[in-house]
């Protein structure tokens, strides 16, 4: 029984890195999708490109089992994706034609 508990604790500790990095990667992916919807590729190309590069690199680091780096890059991907979405939305709002004046 004791051995089984110890093994569980060890497994939990060992699994901490992959679980964390996966969570951050999922968050980053969500933010990237949101940025895509906001046409960030066109209106915030700098942030969009950076977000995608960091996202890919984070996944690559998971492949190397370097979870610490993976988390770091995933966080950066998420940050850039958020900025990309915000900047894209600001730009598109400026480009929208002004609402027509109401007729009495």
């Amino acid at each position: 029984m004791k051995i089984a508990r110890a093994l569980m604790v060890l497994a939990a500790i060992g699994a901490c890195g992959p679980v964390q990095s996966t969570a951050y990667l999922m968050d980053a992916e969500v933010q990237i999708e949101a940025a895509r919807t906001a046409q960030a590729e066109r209106f915030a190309p700098y942030e969009w490109t950076a977000a995608n590069l960091y996202y890919r690199k984070a996944k690559e680091e998971v492949g190397y089992s370097d979870y610490e780096q993976a988390v770091d890059f995933a966080q950066k991907a998420q940050k850039f994706a958020t900025q990309a979405r915000d900047n894209a939305m600001k730009t598109t709002r400026k480009d929208e034609p002004a609402a027509p004046a109401r007729t009495p």
């Binding site: 190309p45 700098y46 969009w48 490109t49 950076a50 590069l53 960091y54 690199k57 950066k76």
Partner: peptide, 14 residues
């Protein structure tokens, strides 16, 4: 050249 700049900066960080 925002894409190229982002690529350069990200790869330098990597």
């Amino acid at each position: 050249a925002p894409r190229e700049l982002a690529t350069a900066e990200a790869n330098l960080d990597f």
